[in-house]
Design a protein around this nucleic acid. Structure first.
Lengths: 333, 333
DNA sequence: TCAGCGCATGACAACGCTGTCAAGTTGATT
DNA sequence: AATCAACTTGACAGCGTTGTCATGCGCTGA
């Protein structure tokens, strides 16, 4: 390669790394030679010799396929534009030695950065291990100690507040709340938003209408049963994610409650299924893919050091039939 | 590390690579030292010096998040037990230079193997490029030229045959068929199965009831409209995947057709949504995760050479409410 | 007794790049 | 004309492993 271009191997390196102080002609020669030979530098050699590995790791422990796929798509597109590659690694965050596994990963792969998704983003042992290795990481949607490291999130509390506010304005006074997985930081913030909306209107939510959930469809079914078979059942239910909202809807169906006439339901995430069920589900869209892309960029640009940026992206409230705000029928697209 | 164990760096390498001709005591010493130091060999250095990179790439161009997530889970678990890492790369298989992009990936990362998922697994240009580089690959669910390279698949034709047979036995005589994405090899095989079932019973399917699809919800809606608004509409519809089946169901809903009384619908894939809609969808479960795990293992064991294995895993027919065979609980449309 | 073999171990040169430093070239400044 | 700074380029030494080859040991069989 260096030979074809008629320059030293080092100069090729300079051109390909966009270093300064290379004459335009040399640069052109090298680029032409590289193009004609389909030359691409070997990542292992680069990693071994230099400071960067061109590898970003995406760590997850999350049951939601849609969430991960979105995340991955965002992270990947940022990687590609930066010439990076994405290594994905699921982790059992409840396992005994997550931090060791994560540390091993960093040592073995010399990743230039890690993207931590919930609930890994709130695992103190993992954060400690990464700090010890001085491995850059970005926490997606952290709940606890939001000041640690760089973070990317949406305003979970504000989003929940806003949508709950809307339900109250629509006249709902007894609103059920299905909590999220207790280990996800977002769960707490969403709960806070829910309560804050009630405070704004001087309402006191009934504690019996706040039931636990695990972010899964089945836990939504359980929660739905508890709420809708309650003697004084709520007229609306806020589920902390779409999967659970669907669980609630299935219970409503079984009980013959018509939505939204007898029951409004809202979710969180805007999963593909939310648009497919009937009535279509009112929900909150997080820009998951953008969040991952943003995190990846921060990692690539090395913006994780002292100044530890905290990006907050915009959410979007999607009004649909399950609250009587969108088309009831049809597959309105 | 070598120092702690009191042996040469080469001996450490031997122990960690499970080479023969190391005395048991030395092996024990080295392993103890490695454990106490949390030592893990650097992947880049290994890749650079040796023949293996400990990297497997999973290539996809597939809209279905659930499919990819399952694939990834399977590939990952096989990677972990083998000490490998998984690099995922989406590709636009319709793009102009997929094969170049894939080739670059192989050169840059020196991956030990690639997993090609549909429709990439049927892209001849990509296969050619990989053959040229002598890069091992496994094709998941290939359609065309199934003899090329090693493959992992299910019997798409047989699965469709079996489920269609069941519909016919249930008394259906006019059965609609929503074809899959034309670039996916499985589409053709499923179509064949559908036709074969008709032949078995001496039936001739109405060509007007065989309509194209793209594997997407929307294309299912289109197909559903064509089929169900037909003057002599079918009493059952076989959709080549669940997403399209859901599209058909949403049209049935709009037209006020009750399922399964007036219309039976079946899909293919057993996506999570299939269990969530009402009535729940009868479908065919592919062991996607096992397929990926199997492919990964073949790659790690280097079983892709001359003898080019062709593994076929078992499918499972899941009977549910949309054909009147299972419980009705679920979310409505 | 001694060649001949198998086994256990280490020395050393790659692998394909990047970081460092030195050398050469050009143009501006004195 | 001499000096110096700024730029351009290349030589060379690693990076942390593996592959190859050499060494030394104990054992076997003539």
């Amino acid at each position: 390669m260096a030979h074809t271009a008629g320059v030293s191997i080092k100069t090729v390196s300079r051109v390909l790394n966009r270093e300064r102080n290379v004459s335009p002609e040399t640069r052109a020669h090298v680029l032409a030679a590289a193009a004609s030979l389909n030359y691409t530098p070997n990542v292992s050699a680069r990693s071994l010799a230099g400071a960067r590995s061109y590898l970003i790791a995406l760590l997850y422990d999350n049951p939601s396929a849609a969430y991960i796929a979105d995340l991955q798509a965002g992270a990947f597109s940022a990687c590609r534009t930066g010439g990076y590659h994405l290594v994905v690694e699921p982790f059992d965050s409840t396992g005994p030695a997550v931090e060791q596994a994560v540390a091993d990963l960093v040592v073995k792969l010399r990743t230039d950065g890690l993207i931590l998704t919930p609930p890994l983003s709130d695992n103190p042992a993992v954060l400690d291990a990464l700090d010890r290795l001085a491995a850059p990481y970005i926490r997606i949607a952290p709940g606890a100690s939001p000041e640690r490291g760089a973070t990317v999130s949406i305003d979970d509390c504000g989003a929940t507040l806003e949508l709950t506010r809307m339900l109250i304005r629509d006249g709902h006074r007894r609103i059920g709340f299905v909590e999220g997985h207790p280990e996800h930081g977002a769960s707490r913030m969403r709960r806070e938003g829910f309560l804050a909306a009630h405070r704004e209107f001087g309402l006191a939510p009934d504690p019996e209408l706040i039931v636990p959930g695990q972010f899964s469809f089945l836990s939504g079914v359980d929660a739905g049963s508890r709420l809708l078979e309650h003697e004084d059942r709520p007229s609306a239910v806020f589920a902390c994610n779409d999967d659970m909202a669907l669980g609630v809807m299935s219970v409503a169906n079984r009980l013959g409650l018509s939505m939204p006439a007898q029951l409004s339901v809202v979710g969180f995430d805007d999963t593909p299924t939310a648009r497919v069920v009937w009535p279509q589900l009112t929900t909150i869209r997080q820009p998951v893919s953008e969040m991952a892309a943003s995190a990846t960029q921060m990692l690539i640009e090395g913006a994780t050091g002292e100044k530890a940026e905290h990006r907050q992206l915009d959410f979007e409230i999607i009004l649909r039939g399950s609250t009587g705000h969108g088309p009831y029928l049809g597959v309105g697209f």
